[in-house]
Design a protein around this nucleic acid. Structure first.
Lengths: 217, 217
DNA sequence: TAGATTGTTAATCGATTAACAATC
DNA sequence: TAGATTGTTAATCGATTAACAATC
């Protein structure tokens, strides 16, 4: 019955948030029931993959009927632990930091922003989403007092080695990394999810300049 | 000899920008020569994969020697078309838009930012990296006059359907998409590279909350 | 020349898709 | 019951790794 949970690959996990978004949308449109076939059409996937993916986590559907949208939405939310409020700090309160803060600040993101730090004296004291920006010098004491577990990195790569060494020493266990510094190579013991904006843009550059060749047989 | 260029998969392409960054770093540190073995150690990959990847594009190395760093850096830059200056417009000049603009504005990104648009009247006329923010009402005429080929989307998903229909009609051929609207589903004829920030954060949430199970045999 | 390291093919591994029995 | 659709296994496809001959 419950031989699930033993084959969850990273590729499946990376698809879960997209399922979650699509199901939220269906739910908001009052759709209660959906088959893997119809969901596949809407998402541009195969029905087979959808059933395979969902089945990693348990029997979410019902033969002859399909899937109950609100229930499936809820279940995937649970799998993603969106209800968690992991204590999170943000390093770097520039444009990127502010943009990213609003994503973390959303309810049901799985994280709760508790501190914001920047090395720029001029913005220390300003408020972002009701949280004061502190000077980076206060980072160590803040962590000792508040025990955040996740750090969001929105600064350039230059000073990253010292900063990550410090953060790991202070008990940070996972990183949402927007810098190009390779945290995972230096600290294999922590969890790192990186968003490499320039890499994404360069991939687009390659693809944009090689569209014709790609279409040949 | 040149039976290359026939097996370039998307997974290889997605690794190229990271190679490019690592090689730039090596070059800046005055390193002229590197073997696949040493590069593999530095990047956390296998030597086999590195040779396989580079070989998709041609014989970049030399048996018994390895790879010439500045040369390989240059070659990968060419493959990624970093020297191109594809005319690009930015839609949405909030924090995210401003952060992203600075990435596009970098020399050698493959793109050149020529116009910025926002629906907020208050910020129309302000300058970002020397480019004036225009009200979104001027988008259509701007495109007719200037023929941008790429659009960067930094607005919420709400009004995306009309906007992307318009942009595609005006000749936009590729999108760097930060919204959750699924451009590729609606317009399969254009190229879309999406950065889904909330998806990335949710993936981190899953992984952060399932670290112990993952380590079991 | 001997040693090193690539280029390239073959073997392995993993992910996706197809098929169909189970069952609602 | 008959029809629909899942859960699940097997087949296929693609990507990574291993191996080694080619060659600098």
């Amino acid at each position: 019955m419950d031989n699930h949970n033993n084959t969850i690959s990273i590729s499946v996990i990376k698809r879960l948030p997209r399922y979650y978004r699509f199901l939220e949308n269906l739910k908001n449109n009052g759709i209660v029931r959906i088959s893997s076939k119809e969901l596949a059409e809407r998402m541009g996937l195969t029905a087979s993959q959808i059933r395979h993916d969902f089945n990693c986590f348990g029997g979410f559907g019902q033969q002859g009927y399909g899937y109950n949208v609100p229930e499936l939405y809820h279940k995937i939310g649970e799998i993603l632990c969106v209800g968690q409020e992991a204590k999170t700090i943000l390093i770097g309160a520039g444009n990127l930091g502010k943009a990213v803060a609003s994503k973390i600040f959303t309810r049901q993101s799985g994280f709760r922003l508790t501190g914001i730090f920047d090395k720029n004296e001029a913005i220390a004291g300003k408020m972002i989403h009701g949280i004061p920006v502190r000077h980076i010098d206060y980072l160590e004491n803040f962590c000792i007092d508040n025990h955040p577990v996740c750090a969001v990195i929105c600064i350039p790569s230059n000073d990253m080695k010292e900063l990550t060494d410090l953060l790991c020493r202070l008990g940070i266990q996972c990183f949402w990394n927007f810098s190009n510094y390779d945290i995972a190579l230096a600290h294999p013991e922590v969890l790192v999810e990186s968003v490499h904006l320039t890499d994404s843009l360069m991939t687009l550059s390659y693809l944009a300049n090689n569209r014709n060749e790609d279409e040949e047989p």
